[in-house]
Design a protein around this nucleic acid. Structure first.
Length: 237
DNA sequence: TCATTAAATTGTT
DNA sequence: AACAATTTAATGA
């Protein structure tokens, strides 16, 4: 299905819109920003294509400009476990980039996406020079920790409605994914892949959530009406 | 720009 | 898993 070759990042000038989709770019001084922009590469990822694979040495710190990615890992039995989706505005791999280790998970495009990459060396240079960048990364690590703890809870829930609600809530996380905003572009099929349910069941759960005015179901996407309701949805049915 | 057609997505069984 | 209904994207005059 997908080729084995690494994602091909090409260098080109990013448009103003693409730069705006990079949340940390505005935290830099003009000097730092010039250096970052000069190094930034951009790539299109086809559906199913791998952005990075477990065990490969870290070369880039990645961010989603547009589209939707899936973060997963393969356990000892060879089964694939999905951790989370990565919507626009999300950056990942900072932990491994800091330690210059190998990727600890796979990142795969769920649909045609646009991915930006910052070379690890530049990533380290920014850590050494920009306080704003450090703050961003620290905040990022902290927020993701919270998200992964929440993900463990989600995994232990049996009720599909709640699983869908909580998974959605984490995709709408404004700190980790500032590019998402009010409307998350995701099909019910894609959400089904992420949550690990059938599309039918996801559709049913979404209809239920819409009936409670927590979300609005739109063609090719979902609109949050009440993020708090998604987060705190408890089991009662 | 509009009308037609194909493709994607959704709702339902 | 299959189907029909609906929405969007693509095409070409």
């Amino acid at each position: 299905m997908q080729t084995d070759s690494a994602l091909h990042l090409r260098r080109r000038a990013l448009t103003a819109g693409e730069l705006d989709a990079i949340p940390w770019i505005h935290l830099l001084s003009s000097l730092e920003r010039d250096r970052a922009v000069d190094d930034l590469k951009i790539a299109d990822a086809a559906p199913g294509e791998y952005i990075c694979r477990m065990g490969r040495p870290v070369t880039y710190w990645f961010g989603v400009v547009d589209g939707l990615l899936k973060m997963s890992s393969d356990n000892a039995e060879g089964q694939t476990m999905t951790f989370t989706g990565v919507p626009p505005g999300g950056w990942f791999g900072e932990g491994t980039a800091m330690k210059r280790e190998t990727y600890r998970y796979n990142i795969q495009a769920l649909r045609k996406s646009m991915v930006a990459g910052l070379h690890v060396d530049t990533f380290h240079w920014l850590l050494d020079h920009s306080i704003g960048f450090n703050r961003f990364v620290m905040n990022q690590l902290n927020e993701r920790l919270g998200q992964f703890i929440a993900a463990r809870e989600i995994d232990r829930m049996t009720n599909p409605d709640i699983r869908v609600a909580r998974s959605l809530a984490s995709l709408f996380n404004p700190v980790l994914y500032p590019g998402v905003g009010e409307v998350l572009r995701i099909t019910q099929q894609e959400l089904a892949y992420l949550v690990g349910l059938s599309r039918q069941r996801v559709n049913e759960a979404l209809t239920a959530l819409a009936a409670q005015d927590a979300i609005k179901v739109e063609y090719g996407g979902l609109r949050v009406m009440d993020l708090q309701a998604l987060r705190s949805r408890m089991s009662f049915r």
